[in-house]
Write a protein that binds this DNA or RNA. Structure first.
Lengths: 350, 350
DNA sequence: CTGAAAGCGCTTACAG
DNA sequence: CTGAAAGCGCTTACAG
């Protein structure tokens, strides 16, 4: 293995100083064209591979990359359609700024902390549900800008969230308008600890995930205005996988056949619910109305197609990346959702 | 802005040498516990943030990250279900090794070269269709291990591909067995230059993408064995998006109503084909048989569900990452596919 | 187990 | 526009 050719070798061969050679690569305008060419020729001849990335990073302090962390669901992030849309938006904005995207990968929370500490990035984007998390503390210790997505983190350089309360309120109102009167809520996990199935009032009150808290409040607000107490609503906590929510829904509808309105906190969950309800012969939307949350593509292909509260996850990711890259003071952006009407809540007019 | 606390400051405060302080963080076993604690205390007191990542990288030459490059479809990679599965496998293996995943992001090929040069990574994983590419040259100039996925790159440290020939041959054979006799092939792009619609014999012969070349050869081999010449098969080049392939299929079936077998090079393309065929009233599988390629989840929800050649893209990505991280000599892995039988090729027995 | 020293390869003030 | 020098912050032989 030959010794690596470095800038000084090139400079010597070209008969210039190291500084000038550096400029030829990094700031070509500062070097006279003929000298620049001489330097490039020397580089080619010696087999110089261009400035060493890590050395430049150390010197300039810039990593040229944004770190993306999914503390709640590390492996899972690459399966959730919504996370992928987020990543697409992040990737788009990073590409625009000529910055790479570093996905912090780990098998468990402890490893994630190491992974965060080993990542050469200029800022972190954190997608998580809960603000109380060792991984977040590890990031904050690094003292780099942190943009939080979908939850509030104290001291974040920026925050992008949804108006989850309004979205959930509108979702419940829509099912009320469609005539539903006996409700079940299929909730996302309320805390980091796995817990599936019926939610006790205790558990309902203990939701540490901002998204869950806000959406529950929104659903309840609309229902209570229609005279339906939260205690009369069946709450089921689901894993965010259609297979799992299908199982939960089968049990739900066996125990509570009177349910005629299902409020699902994600489309993935809603899709499982529709599958399960159809399998046991429930007619939708006549017999049972379902509304999801997110607006993923797969919702177009359920039977019936899924009515949902649509959010623009791509834009959410893009905005977060933009905040991270702009270096502006920390602000909070709250995005709106819109009702995406399909067949699972009312007969299509088509 | 206070000056950054560095290791030497901590060492002085703890009354040890810089080397010992370094060991306390990086190789704790080499430092006596009581000394170690003294160092950690000093670090805490001074607000030391832990060893500087970039400095360590420069010194050790290890980046602790794997670069992933999609030269053909930079933004598109986060939309294609198959690319996402690949990424999931890569992420899984990287997490296992405590290595982060760096996605090289760029808006155009030129930017991609810069992005490659700015990426602090230990090796590159390249997913591409064609081996002749400026981005690949840029990577090779960096002289780091390069694992190529889905195509052969000369000098790669490793290669992971599918047995595309056998897969396509089996796909065509299956439709023959189901009774199809008039075929159309919906092909992926054959070269990097956009070209959609009917393929001339010229274009067929010029396919620079390995995947397209192999699959065409496989389809043709099976069809020719059944007495069907390649020149009697309609070839259409599609963008890998269901909306686009749907349009192409509508035209195809208008021009060639006799077609009763569609061989699609991806499930995404096949899904569009099924949608289009159903929209104009073609009965599947009775009237028209369709087989896809990949085995993505969305294929379960078409009407009828999509028969396809299933590949394990997650494993493909995982294997590629494993090769990159093992540092073993370059070898080639060829993965098999399997027929995934659903309703688009024959009546289900259910 | 500990300390003193070298050096990873570059970029950037600074002086000309 | 060019050159000489400092230093980014660390880890790792090396000698004890």
């Amino acid at each position: 293995m030959a010794k690596r050719v470095k800038l000084l070798d090139v400079a010597k061969a070209a008969g210039v100083s190291q500084g000038t050679a550096s400029n030829a690569f990094g700031k070509p305008d500062l070097v006279r064209p003929e000298v620049r060419e001489r330097i490039f020729d020397a580089a080619r001849e010696l087999g110089y591979r261009g400035p060493h990335v890590m050395a430049r990073m150390l010197r300039t302090g810039k990593a040229g990359a944004l770190g993306v962390v999914f503390p709640d669901n590390l492996e899972y992030a690459f399966s959730d359609p919504v996370a992928i849309e987020l990543l697409r938006g992040i990737g788009r904005e990073c590409a625009h700024h000529g910055v790479n995207v570093m996905i912090i990968s780990a098998e468990n929370p402890e490893q994630a902390i190491t992974a965060v500490n080993n990542a050469a990035v200029d800022a972190f984007l954190v997608h998580c549900y809960s603000d109380n998390n060792d991984i977040i503390k590890a990031i904050q210790r690094r003292n780099q800008p942190l943009i939080s997505i979908d939850t509030d983190i104290a001291g974040a350089a920026g925050t992008v969230v949804l108006d989850d309360f309004a979205a959930a309120k509108n979702a419940a109102q829509h099912l009320l308008d469609c005539g539903a009167s006996k409700f079940a809520i299929l909730s996302l996990q309320a805390t980091e600890h796995d817990h599936f199935g019926p939610m006790s009032p205790n558990r309902l009150g203990a939701a540490s995930h901002r998204v869950v808290r806000e959406r529950l409040a929104g659903y309840h607000t609309a229902l209570e205005a229609a005279g339906i107490a939260a205690s009369d609503v069946v709450h089921i906590e689901c894993d965010n996988q259609s297979g799992h929510s299908a199982k939960m829904t089968t049990e739900l509808l066996a125990d509570h056949p009177e349910i005629d309105g299902i409020l699902a906190m994600s489309d993935v969950i809603a899709i499982g619910a529709i599958d399960a309800a159809r399998a046991i012969g429930r007619k939708m939307p006549g017999d049972l109305k379902v509304i999801g949350f997110d607006g993923i593509q797969a919702g177009e292909r359920t039977d019936p197609p899924l009515t949902t509260m649509h959010q623009d996850s791509v834009e959410k990711g893009r905005l977060a990346a933009e905040m991270a890259l702009s270096g502006e003071p920390g602000k909070t952006i709250m995005l709106e959702t819109s009702l995406l009407l399909r067949g699972s809540s009312q007969e299509s007019s088509a």
